[in-house]
Structure formats: structure tokens, C-alpha cells
């Protein structure tokens, strides 16, 4: 029973992180129509910035805010330097076909990931760093047993829900949110409606950059920081987003918690080596049985 409880707790706190990563992916997908494989690279980079500030005795919260701002800036840079020229080029390129149109941004985002990882390696070396938490991280005590669930985990879950509510309101309740959905779904009709799709897309990269650096900041206390540690989160976050439905914010959060529990139970009851196999099986099962995900709309899989 204790083992079961601790698996639940561990899974929930992991799940919150996966949910944030998945949210970041869904935000760019809905705002710019790209699955951004460089996302956790951006998160890693801004977390390194925060870690450097903390090492120089700035307070956690200063570092926290700086990391979010630099995450947003990185997002904007990715869009302005790579994705926007790519979009302009794609309409006239030699490789223009529907299949390649959806493939080329993926390759570009992998290039960005490579640049960020190499840059982090050059600047901060490959040394693994720890990262502090803003609230205490002592385990919760139930029946005299210490559970793998802390005030920090509660803080993380709280942040996930605030982010979910805020982004959902933004998409459904504001004009900018509508402009963002319209530009991702049909750029031509959006432009003919007077929406500045360039600006809107950059904004979605910024928001997603902030959300993913949030994920980076919150996962790092439990995973140590290195140029490559967050790759895993990206892969699980991607699976979570697909499980939830790539266009659904709520779905991606549900997917994130589901994946967190899955990983935790495989860890506790089976063996850590099986995690990727379990993730692969879940991913393939969802893609075959319900390709639009739990909450996704059918038409979103237009790629």
C-alpha cells in the first residue's frame, strides 16, 4: 500500500513537469503549426542562465524571472532567425510538397537543439549542476512514512494549473488567442482577415518559450542540469501531448499526468529500463486506436 501510494505521489509530481513540457509543445503547435523539438533545449539554456545567477548570489526569484524572460526571448529568436525565413522560403523552394512542408521545420528545430546544446556545452561545460527549489523539499509524512511528495511538488502542480487556466483563457477568451488559432489553422484566411500572422506567430513562440523554461526550472531540482538532461522530458512531453491530443491544452495536461503515473508505476513495479518501451507502446496504441488523442479534434491531423 505504501509502495502504491508513493508511486502515485511520485507519478503526480513527475506528471506535472511532463504536463508543462506538453503544454509548451501544444502552444507552438496551435500558434504556429510547428512541433518544436528544440523546446527543451531552449528550456535547458534559460535554466543554465538562472543557475549562473544563483551561483552569483542572486535570489531564486530574480533568477526565476530572468529565466522566464530569456526563455521568451529565445522563443522569439528561434522564430525570427529560423522559422520565419523558412516560411518565406518554403513557398518557392525546390523541396515544396506537402510531405516536406511538415518535415522541414522538424529538421530545423533539431538544428536549433544542436546549436543550443553545443553553446551550453561551450559556455558552461558539460559539468552537471544541481538546482535549488524555492520552497522546502522535505517529503510529506503519511502513517509515519515519508512519501516522495513535497511542498515543492505542490508548488509545481499549482503552477501547472495556473498555466493551464491562463493559456486556456487566452486562447478561448481573447482576440489575440483567436488570432493565434486562426493563423495556425489557415494562414491565408487569417491574413485576409487582417491578422498580422508574423507577429502572432512570434508571440506564440514567446509564450511557449516561457512555458518551457518554466518546465526547465521546475524539473531541474530533481534531475540535475546538463546540456542533455532535458531531452528525456521533451520525448515524454511529446508523447503526453499526442496522447492528450496535440491541439488540446487540457488534453496535454491530462496526458502529462497520465505519462507521469505510467513512468512512476513502471519504475516501482517493473524496471526503469522498460520506461521507453512502455512509452512507445502507449504512443503507438494511441496513434493507432485514437490518432486525434483523448481530447483532440479530428481535423487537426491535417498534416
Amino acid at each position: 500500500m505504501d509502495i502504491f501510494l508513493s508511486a502515485i505521489f511520485a507519478g503526480t509530481s513527475r506528471g506535472a513537469i511532463y504536463a508543462l513540457a506538453a503544454l509548451g509543445l501544444v502552444l507552438v503547435w496551435r500558434g504556429a503549426g510547428v512541433v518544436n523539438f528544440a523546446q527543451m533545449g531552449q528550456a535547458m539554456f534559460s535554466t543554465y542562465i538562472a543557475s549562473t545567477l544563483i551561483a552569483q548570489n542572486y535570489s531564486y526569484w530574480v533568477a526565476f524571472v530572468v529565466a522566464l524572460v530569456s526563455g521568451g526571448l529565445l522563443g522569439a529568436l528561434v522564430d525570427l532567425l529560423v522559422m520565419r525565413p523558412l516560411n518565406r522560403k518554403r513557398s518557392s523552394s525546390a523541396l515544396d510538397s506537402p510531405a516536406m512542408r511538415s518535415t522541414i521545420p522538424v529538421i530545423a528545430s533539431l538544428g536549433i537543439l544542436g546549436v543550443l546544446q553545443a553553446a551550453a556545452g561551450m559556455i558552461w561545460a558539460a559539468e552537471e549542476r544541481g538546482f535549488p527549489t524555492p520552497v522546502n523539499s522535505l517529503g510529506l509524512v503519511i502513517n509515519g512514512k515519508i512519501m516522495p511528495f513535497t511542498a515543492f511538488d505542490l508548488f509545481v502542480i499549482g503552477i501547472v494549473f495556473v498555466t493551464l487556466v491562463a493559456t486556456t483563457y487566452f486562447f478561448k477568451g481573447t482576440g489575440m488567442g483567436l488570432a493565434m488559432r486562426a493563423s495556425a489553422l489557415n494562414p491565408e484566411v487569417a491574413r485576409l482577415s487582417g491578422i498580422r500572422i508574423g507577429f502572432v506567430r512570434t508571440l506564440s513562440w514567446v509564450i511557449s518559450g516561457v512555458a518551457s523554461s518554466l518546465a526547465g526550472l521546475l524539473v531541474t531540482p530533481s534531475a540535475n542540469l546538463s546540456p542533455y538532461t532535458l531531452d528525456l522530458i521533451l520525448i515524454i512531453g511529446f508523447t503526453a501531448a499526442v496522447v492528450g491530443g496535440l491541439d488540446s491544452l487540457l488534453g496535454s495536461v491530462i496526458g502529462g499526468f497520465a505519462l507521469g503515473l505510467l513512468v512512476s508505476f513502471v519504475n516501482v513495479y517493473d524496471a526503469p529500463e522498460d520506461i521507453f518501451l512502455a512509452i512507445l507502446i502507449v504512443l503507438l496504441t494511441v496513434l493507432i486506436i485514437r490518432p486525434q488523442g483523448i481530447l483532440g479534434s479530428k481535423e487537426v491531423r491535417r498534416v
Binding site: 488570432a179 488559432r181 489557415n186 491565408e188 484566411v189 491578422i195
Partner: peptide, 20 residues
């Protein structure tokens, strides 16, 4: 040319966003 994944209301609103 409408955006079929958006509601009717949203499609109309979309055309006025720039002067909202």
C-alpha cells in the same frame, strides 16, 4: 474559405479583430 475548426461566431469575429 472559412476556418472549419473555429465556430461560426469566431469566424465572423476574426474578420474584425484588427479594429476590435
Amino acid at each position: 474559405a472559412v476556418i472549419s475548426q473555429l465556430s461560426v461566431e469566431e469566424n465572423i469575429e476574426m474578420g474584425a479583430l484588427f479594429r476590435m
